[in-house]
Nucleic acid binder design. Structure first.
Lengths: 258, 258
DNA sequence: TTCCGTATGTTGGTATACCATCATATCAAG
DNA sequence: CTTGATATGATGGTATACCAACATACGGAA
């Protein structure tokens, strides 16, 4: 770990690949603002933020691990100003905590918190899928179909991070189709906080089977424009994930996952 | 506005009054960790964060207004490092946006976003009040009664910020009694983003009447341990607030409230 | 009068320097 | 062997310096 390096030199392509700009660019057909030159002022801070966030979510930095500022400076190749501003952002996101007298550490997650997160996801995601089932346009349905195909392909390879990305794409499509950008922001943030749990959950054998099955049930309900069925399937999906997560986390020490 | 000064000198008492530490100190009876000395490292950054956040929520800085870093340095009496880290935090909270080529501005709120926020609040708050109604202990009920009394007293004075604080205390009690700390964090943050709307909504005459009435209906339902009635009353409370807010915001220019 | 180029001042982005504090190690006294 | 005091190294908190880029104002030329 001491040799970990996350250099930012020549990461422009990487940044571009992260569709950082999806939030600002709408459908080119409808949005004349698409003509904007939009030379994106990719700042060091933004790059470092994405890097560090991904590193934490991917588990490169373990929960509870100290994030020594000067060490991060070396690893990322930027100054402390940048690192500290990034840490403030991640702190507000809940991914980093400030341990008293110690400085920043990767946030710990207790089961009673994870459970709340799953509950909130149920509340927000069931609303979103129901809305989507009520009025999904053909484009959305087609997109969901494509995402599910990707998921099926990838679920066989059992690459947790890839599956996670596909799952995110699935729900992102649902949320955004119903105009729930803010709710999606919240869910994204919450998912970041339980990312380790999600990876561990996916590693569970039966999860790679029933997870996609549940999502297909949601998809079918949306195709049939059946909000109630979609809600039920969504609730089942998250509830099951939460149950698996509880089995993984609950027996651990009283409040943390290391 | 140019003479605005938010000096931090000798604000220790103010900070203490903000119950910054409520999150770290639990019930002293149950929590032996309460014995900790806990010399709170009140950092300049934390003070500046609270100050600036409150200033934005209170409307001292208007939506869309530029937050020039060096000017804030003068107004708050701290260096740019502190200001910039605070701005990062507020940016992650959604209270501040980074305008391209311009720097930070107070976040604008469009009605289609405000509407989403009210919808999310309905999802989260109905869940919380239902849980509270299911298993509220006498202490919680007593606390709610006290808060409602405060509200009645203050609602006559028509001081929007005070009423807002009492309303927050009401819901905070409900959320925390059911162990929904994370949901309450989310709601708090969302409320910050629509704080102007909330103040304007409260200024509406009939709101000062029906708002407390709705909250009393929620309270009564909790007293009777009637989750369904509590849910309905809560939904009515938020829906009504949203309707008033829509009337205030919707006729405005296409996407912002200034 | 209009248009264009230059100069200037403001702003955010970045890096670095300094300081108080805390944790740890070392060592001496009991 | 244990306890306590001192020294030292590391860490976060804070302030400041420097720079590139942008916006604006001004002035001259067509």
């Amino acid at each position: 770990m001491s040799s970990l390096v996350l250099k930012l030199s020549s990461v422009y392509d990487w940044v571009m690949s992260q569709k950082l700009f999806a939030a600002t660019a709408d459908d080119p057909v409808q949005d004349p603002a698409m003509l904007r030159i939009d030379n994106p002022p990719v700042t060091l801070r933004e790059m470092a933020l994405e890097r560090l966030r991904n590193a934490i979510i991917a588990g490169i930095f373990r929960p509870g691990q100290r994030l020594v500022e000067r060490a991060l400076c070396d690893q990322l190749g930027v100054s402390r100003s940048v690192i500290r501003e990034v840490l403030r952002h991640l702190e507000a996101e809940g991914l980093v905590e400030m341990a008293p007298k110690q400085g920043p550490i990767v946030a710990l997650i207790a089961w009673h918190q994870a459970r709340q997160i799953y509950d909130i996801r149920i509340a927000l995601e069931t609303t979103a899928v129901a809305d989507c089932a009520r009025g999904a346009d053909p484009d959305t349905k087609e997109k969901l179909r494509t995402v599910l195909e990707d998921l099926d392909r990838n679920s066989r390879k059992n690459d947790a991070l890839t599956i996670l990305a596909a799952t995110n794409a699935f729900y992102e499509t649902i949320f955004l189709s119903g105009g729930h950008e803010i709710a999606w922001d919240i869910v994204k943030r919450l998912n970041g906080r339980i990312s380790r749990l999600r990876v561990m959950t996916l590693a569970t054998a039966n999860r790679t089977i029933s997870g996609p099955a549940n999502m297909r049930a949601i998809f079918d309900a949306i195709l049939r424009n059946d909000p109630d069925a979609a809600t039920a399937a969504c609730r089942a999906h998250i509830t099951e994930a939460a149950r698996i997560a509880e089995g993984l986390l609950s027996p651990e020490t009283p409040a943390t996952i290391a």
